[in-house]
Design a protein around this nucleic acid. Sequence first.
DNA 1: GCGTTCAGTTTACATCTGTAGTCATAGCAT
DNA 2: ATGCTATGACTACAGATGTAAACTGAACGC
Lengths: 133, 133
Amino acid sequence: MPAANDQIKNGSGDRISEAEHTVMEALWERSPLTALEICKEVCSRRDWSLATVKTLLSRLVAKNAVATEPDGRRFLYTPLLEKSDYTGAESRRLVDRLFGGRAAPLFAQLAEAEALTEADLNEMEALLKELRK
Amino acid sequence: MPAANDQIKNGSGDRISEAEHTVMEALWERSPLTALEICKEVCSRRDWSLATVKTLLSRLVAKNAVATEPDGRRFLYTPLLEKSDYTGAESRRLVDRLFGGRAAPLFAQLAEAEALTEADLNEMEALLKELRK
DNA sequence: GCGTTCAGTTTACATCTGTAGTCATAGCAT
DNA sequence: ATGCTATGACTACAGATGTAAACTGAACGC
């Protein structure tokens, strides 16, 4: 195989931490945004200062998870990492780590913890039917 | 309410880290075990030294996740935190954090990532039927 | 009894994370 | 032109985590 693909998978090198994920959520919701705008979205909810958001943004840029585009003196931030890629990878990690890669036990677990709503059941039923087509 | 219950929930105070979880797995598999026995189980798989296992065990004891019982000069370790409690809490955390507490999108995600085996589908179908009884 | 050895305890240390303050600088207003 | 101000970059720092070596005390062999 060519050596070219020891590039880290899917464009994002490192893992996104929990705090960083909060920032990503804001950007997935709407983008591009400035640091201040992001702060407006998340600072109160998480009780953060603007400085914190700035730090998290730098780290996300370093991790190649968001792109910057200059806009006058400031930056506009856009997500590079896609939400579904992130949630997919995280979900998978959990299933692998806790349930040996099997999804059914996870489902059982959530059922036991009463974490499944009626709506969940309906949607999952539909999904199952769909997958079985 | 009496002040007695500001004891941290469910007996386990702090979170269990990923490395610590590996040790817990060994103990959930079979217990009680000595540190050396645990190392036999996990050291090669994770490329750890015995010292590392010892450290993780101390931390788990500090976190009240495992109990020690003296056995001559050494200790026998037994899990205090139950596996289902751990997997339940972790699963829930993920669902809350990534999918706003809804389980259905998680399964959609796993389906999309082709992380659902035929067996998973069967089991989940059965479970759904059961929950719907 | 006395040293060797084994096993838990202490200490170590680099990295990651959460959280934020300080610095420098480029525009903007006057 | 010049100082104010907004904004990214750099610095800080405590706590968690991963990983492990050094220390210490007790049990076991002889």
